[in-house]
Computed example of a mutant assay.
Amino acid sequence: MRKVNGCVPFLAVCLLLAGLLSGCAHERVDPAYLALVEQQAELPPTGELGPGDRFLLRVYGEEALSGEFTVGADGTINYPHVGRFKAEGLTCTDVEVQLTLGLGEKFLKEPNVQCTIVEYNSKRIFIFGEVREPGTFPYKNNISIIEAFALAGGFNERASTNNTKLTRVVDGVEIQVRVPLQEIVEGRQRNLRLLPGDIIFVPESAY
């Protein structure tokens, strides 16, 4: 277990203890999963841009300034009348503000700029095990675990869905949580928002 600033963060410890307790009652929903679901509303935004990410810019009434852009390997984009600027680490909202200011200073009066993410390629999620198309997938903002399995083509017939494992780094500590996927599909448990770097593994059923 990795430590941060000499101690294991409190949140990660709570999740690890919850996971250990769940092993005593295999049929019950993992308390660590319930804790993640409860905390997801408080998670910080994950929409910062990185190299390879694609986004669409629209400037109202200016077709020549509208189009799709890709963050370069150096973390920058080159935009008409504004020039090259650092997009890495910015959100779409940050880009809107920067371009609104840039265009307003040099080219347009009161520009209306809209930014929409097309695809995150700098952030990935990983899905392995008993799914039809295992592999790595570009992260999408606010993607749920059910949406992720749709990207992977769904489950194989041998999948033990309620024993699905989610591996995530929380406060610098790697944790593993059992996800009750079948119960989520049936509407008996709440869905979970994934984060960049999440690893999901679906084991084979013993039957």
Rank of each mutant, 00 (worst) to 15 (best):
T116V: 14
L192W: 07
P138A: 08
P80T: 00
L195I: 09
Y79E: 01
G187H: 08
N162W: 01
I143C: 02
G172N: 11
I143T: 00
E119W: 07
S66P: 01
E88S: 15
N112T: 14
D198C: 07
N191I: 11
I200C: 02
F69K: 11
E68F: 07
V131N: 10
V71I: 13
V71E: 00
F69P: 04
T167L: 11
V82T: 12
I199R: 14
I125M: 09
T164Y: 06
L108E: 05
T136R: 14
G172W: 11
E62K: 12
E68L: 12
P196G: 05
P203V: 05
I143A: 02
P138W: 06
A87D: 00
D94F: 09
R190H: 13
E174D: 12
T100F: 05
A87R: 03
V170C: 01
L194N: 04
P134V: 08
N112V: 14
F107E: 11
Y139A: 05
G104Y: 06
V202P: 01
A159Y: 01
P111R: 07
I199K: 13
R84H: 02
K140C: 02
T167K: 13
V179K: 01
L192N: 09
L195T: 09
T136Y: 10
R132V: 12
L99G: 02
A152M: 04
N156K: 15
E88N: 10
G83C: 08
G75N: 06
N112Q: 15
A87G: 03
V131Q: 08
T100D: 06
Q182T: 14
I175Y: 00
D94R: 05
G172D: 12
G61W: 04
N191F: 03
T76Y: 05
L194T: 03
E105H: 09
K109I: 13
N162H: 04
R168D: 01
R132N: 13
G75V: 11
R190S: 14
Q189Y: 07
A73C: 05
E133L: 12
A159R: 04
N141L: 15
H81A: 10
Y120L: 08
N156F: 04
A73Q: 14
V202E: 03
E157L: 15
Q176S: 15
L194H: 00
R124M: 15
V131M: 11
E157G: 11
Q176N: 11
G129S: 10
T136W: 09
T136C: 07
R84C: 10
N121M: 13
I184H: 01
R168V: 03
D198F: 01
L101D: 11
Y79G: 07
V59S: 04
R168C: 00
C92D: 05
P111H: 07
Q98C: 06
